[in-house]
């Protein structure tokens, strides 16, 4: 992907956003609609600038974007979503332990010098320590509520 493609995507995305908000703003009355209108017009103009700049751009913006490890990013986002969606159903500490284990072990995948058993052991120790510290700091000392679920 080049910067040009990304920028065109960006401007189109912003146009869609403008359209969605514009639809709702039209239902508002004065003076509530003034501020949203200003913002929408501003975004639309700037997006148009980005769009035109890139459609008619010369070589300088067409350079390649640095390589993104899509698989990794998508899986981290997916695991995180799964994590927070299961907190309220299953329980904060239970899911957190699993999440920490999975993340720590899988993020070490490129560490070829460490044996798998070591990775799992280290992650396990970390998980235990973190969960205990979180419990002490948040639930006992600060009395900040942590999400609750079915199991603790």
């Amino acid at each position: 992907m080049t910067h040009r493609v990304v920028n065109i995507f960006l401007s189109v995305g912003m146009f869609v956003l403008c359209a969605v908000f514009l639809y709702q703003t039209n239902k508002l009355s004065y003076p509530s609609n003034v501020f949203p209108y200003i913002l929408i017009i501003g975004i639309a103009i700037l997006s148009l600038m980005v769009f035109l700049q890139n459609i008619f751009s010369k070589a300088e913006v067409i350079e390649k974007l640095e390589k993104i490890n899509y698989k990794r990013v998508i899986s981290i986002v997916a695991i995180s979503f799964l994590y927070i969606s299961s907190i309220s159903a299953i329980g904060f500490y239970a899911v957190t332990s699993i999440y920490l284990m999975v993340m720590c072990v899988s993020l070490q995948s490129h560490e070829t010098s460490i044996r798998m058993a070591m990775k799992i052991r280290n992650s396990f120790i970390l998980t235990i320590i973190v969960v205990i510290i979180v419990y002490i700091v948040f639930n006992i000392l600060l009395k900040v509520p942590t999400p609750r679920g079915f199991l603790i």
Partner: peptide
């Protein structure tokens, strides 16, 4: 190492987002 720091930060961030209003919506 980052592979330990990052997951812990994500967990702490979730607590932080939740603690504001006790609301899972904020975590999402």
């Amino acid at each position: 190492p980052l592979y330990f720091v990052a997951p812990v930060i994500l967990v702490l961030s979730s607590i932080g987002a939740y603690a504001l209003h006790n609301s899972m919506l904020d975590v999402f």
